[in-house]
Simulated scan of single mutants.
Amino acid sequence: MSDEQEVKPDKPERKIMTPEEREAKVKAAAEARAARERAKAEAGGGDVPAPEAAADGAAGATPERKVLTDEEKEAKVKAAAEARAARAKAKEEAEAAAAEAAPKEPSHNQPRLDHAIAILKEKIAEDVVEESSINENNNHLPTLTIKNEHWYTCAELLKHDPEFQCDYLRNVSGADHETHMEVVYHMVSITTQHEYCIRVKTDRDQPSVDSVTPIWQTANWNEREIYDLLGIAFPGHPDLRRIMMSDDWVGHPLRKDYVPLDSEV
């Protein structure tokens, strides 16, 4: 080595830390960061992170995954099912509301119902029809409530008038509505295949509706059954007597206020 050549000082030897020293250094750094975060939070009014959490984050620790119990799993599944049901119900209600808001198309049988009302008013009486509607659930069946005092004349017209030709009485039934009684007739024209439902109301104290057995013979046993079970009289019937219960039976079993004389029967 020449005298002019500069002599460089030796580099200090790098100290190798023990695991305990490394852990202490990491912990000290974490505590320093936690202190800085605490000071920042106190200055800004925020929450202060726990030193343990900061230390864990600095050390790169992964939080342990919680193992759910059977009860917690069941509760979680139930909550998810309830959420799905709630969403489905909300969707259904929204669709129903949209359907109600949409303008409703008139029934294809509405013109026939209007025509029937016009004929009855013209040929019988202006007040002959009390109510009218289209029964959409029964194939859009035209339905009319006829005033009791006009019923027999109306029945004759429905059978014989060329506009109706209702030559087949399909069914007769009775109903107790508590405020009043009602007889319901379903009829059809074999020629035109047009069907009608006619309702006739009567009071509950002395219920009475003119018999249409002289017009449609099929009404005979139907009217006897209604008389037997509901107590509605049918003036003009050729043989109005009980048909199901015995002649000495007390009361009418299909009335809503019926109380049997013998509770064991």
Rank of each mutant, 00 (worst) to 15 (best):
A28E: 15
A29E: 13
A29L: 07
A29S: 03
A30W: 12
A30D: 04
E31F: 01
R33F: 04
R33K: 14
A35E: 13
A35C: 12
R36H: 08
R36D: 12
R36G: 06
E37S: 03
E37Q: 09
E37T: 01
R38E: 00
R38G: 01
R38P: 00
R38M: 01
A39L: 11
K40M: 15
K40R: 15
A41E: 11
A41L: 13
E42C: 04
E42T: 15
A43R: 15
A43E: 15
G44I: 04
G44Q: 12
G44D: 15
G45K: 10
D47H: 03
D47I: 05
D47A: 11
P49D: 07
P49R: 12
A50H: 14
A50Q: 14
A50Y: 15
P51T: 15
P51H: 12
E52L: 06
E52Q: 15
A53P: 10
A53N: 13
A54T: 12
A54I: 14
A54H: 05
A55T: 05
A55G: 00
D56F: 06
G57W: 10
G57I: 09
G57Q: 13
G57L: 12
G60Q: 00
G60K: 03
A61H: 08
A61P: 01
T62A: 03
T62E: 07
T62S: 07
P63L: 08
P63D: 06
E64K: 08
E64P: 02
R65D: 08
R65E: 09
R65N: 04
R65M: 08
K66C: 02
K66A: 04
K66V: 04
K66Q: 06
K66S: 04
V67K: 10
L68P: 04
T69M: 06
T69I: 08
T69K: 06
T69E: 05
D70W: 02
D70V: 07
D70F: 08
D70L: 10
E71D: 09
E71P: 06
E71Y: 08
E72L: 08
K73P: 00
K73I: 03
A75K: 11
A75Q: 10
A75M: 06
K76T: 07
